[in-house]
């Protein structure tokens, strides 16, 4: 009798878990299929390399690709060192204390703030207050603030998993704290830190609201950090929202998916190569 109940529990649990996993995969396939079915036929070399014409009804998406890459680059170049630095501070320079708890609570709160709020802050602070206007710089800095919590918490988690014996070894061989961090802690934490940065790249590429408020939505080719710019996601949003061209919107969507896929494949390859090299 007891055995039958246990057997039943097993089977029910197994079925529920399978349903969960399968529906996740089904949802993912459905989304990809929908976008790629409509979008892939639009894609050809010119679509990637030509600038948009007539508000995006014709031509390609080249300027938005440049905008996306530039904004993401600014966000990562500014956000990653700040975030990793904060994580190092929390893990290696302070013990669990009031200060570290306040910082951690702050970053946790920031992680839950909707991106539009970051956009509003960026608009008020970078665009108006610092007079940087709608620009790649304003947008990039706003994105940097937005990704900080992700970078900090993934980097901190990653640093936390490094055995304290590594540190002891480094100190016992005469290493200073800084040498220990740069030669032992960070190299070991790198794959985890990199994963956090990868997530941040994804979030930056996908962001729309905060970018419209801080970088604008100009289709003109950006020439400097102070040029306004439109990213692919914003382009997609405007094309679809304002009914300019669903065909081009799907094309942009498909291109976005390919971009994110490419970034992930390259990153995974790099991480695996790095890990293999070290073990």
């Amino acid at each position: 009798m007891i055995n039958r109940t246990r057997y039943l529990t097993q089977s029910v649990a197994k079925i529920l878990i399978w349903i969960g996993a399968l529906s996740t995969i089904a949802m993912m396939i459905l989304i990809l299929f929908q976008i790629l079915r409509e979008g892939l036929p639009v894609l050809h070399l010119g679509f990637f390399l030509d600038s948009p014409k007539n508000m995006g009804r014709e031509g390609g998406i080249f300027t938005t690709i440049v905008g996306t890459v530039a904004l993401t680059a600014v966000a990562i170049i500014v956000g990653a060192p700040l975030g990793v630095g904060t994580a190092i501070f929390l893990r290696e320079y302070t013990r669990e204390s009031k200060t570290s708890r306040v910082i951690r609570f702050g970053t946790d709160c920031l992680a839950g703030v909707p991106s539009i709020i970051f956009g509003l802050f960026g608009f008020v602070f970078f665009v108006i207050r610092l007079n940087m206007g709608w620009s790649i710089l304003s947008g990039g800095l706003t994105l940097a603030a937005m990704i900080l919590p992700t970078v900090i918490s993934t980097a901190e988690e990653s640093i936390k998993t490094i055995p304290s014996s590594y540190r002891e070894v480094s100190y016992s061989l005469g290493g200073t704290r800084w040498q220990t961090i740069t030669r032992v802690v960070l190299p070991s934490a790198l794959p985890g830190i990199f994963t956090g940065i990868l997530l941040s790249i994804g979030r930056s590429i996908g962001e729309t609201a905060a970018i419209i408020l801080t970088a604008g939505s100009s289709l003109v080719m950006p020439t400097s950090l102070f040029s306004p710019s439109r990213t692919m996601s914003v382009h997609f949003y405007i094309l679809a929202r304002e009914g300019i061209s669903m065909k081009m919107a799907y094309g942009t969507g498909a291109a976005l998916i390919l971009l994110v896929l490419m970034v992930n494949i390259i990153a995974q390859w790099l991480i695996n190569r790095y890990i293999r090299h070290r073990t």
Binding site: P163, S165, V169, S172, L173, G174, T279
Partner: peptide, 20 residues
Amino acid sequence: LTHLRRRIGMVFDLPTPLPM
């Protein structure tokens, strides 16, 4: 301290090769 620790080397209870 750095100098002291170079004069007195330590081997720990479990082998602790660094991942390199």
